[in-house]
């Protein structure tokens, strides 16, 4: 089932990407081609196969509960677009 323009808009909203109206049909078209292509996966029966999330089936490595980081605010905020008094600023958010 092809993806509709409405769905493309919904996905774009989830991904926080704006698509200009003039580009909409080309995105819709390309996404449909890509999805049709990946739909080839349906050709194979995978019932009962455990999904593989990670190539090496190892277990999580852990670190000790130790504070190892020092304050580097100045360095980290030197690349920030907008800060004030050590805080990052964004347009007002209404909760």
């Amino acid at each position: 089932m092809p993806i509709t323009e409405k769905e493309v808009r919904e996905i774009a909203q989830l991904a926080r990407i704006s698509i200009a109206d003039k580009d909409m049909s080309s995105y819709e078209d390309q996404l449909n081609k890509i999805l049709a292509f990946v739909d080839e996966m349906k050709a194979i029966e995978t019932e009962g196969i455990i999904p593989l999330a990670h190539p090496l089936e190892e277990t999580q490595k852990l670190r000790n509960d130790k504070v190892s980081e020092k304050n580097q605010r100045e360095s980290y905020q030197s690349v920030a677009p907008t800060t004030e008094n050590g805080l990052y600023l964004v347009p007002q958010v209404i909760e």
């Binding site: 990946v38 996966m41 349906k42 194979i44 995978t46 196969i49 455990i50 999904p51 593989l52 999330a53």
Partner: peptide, 8 residues
Amino acid sequence: KAQQIRRL
């Protein structure tokens, strides 16, 4: 589905 194929 893709992760299952990945295992195969």
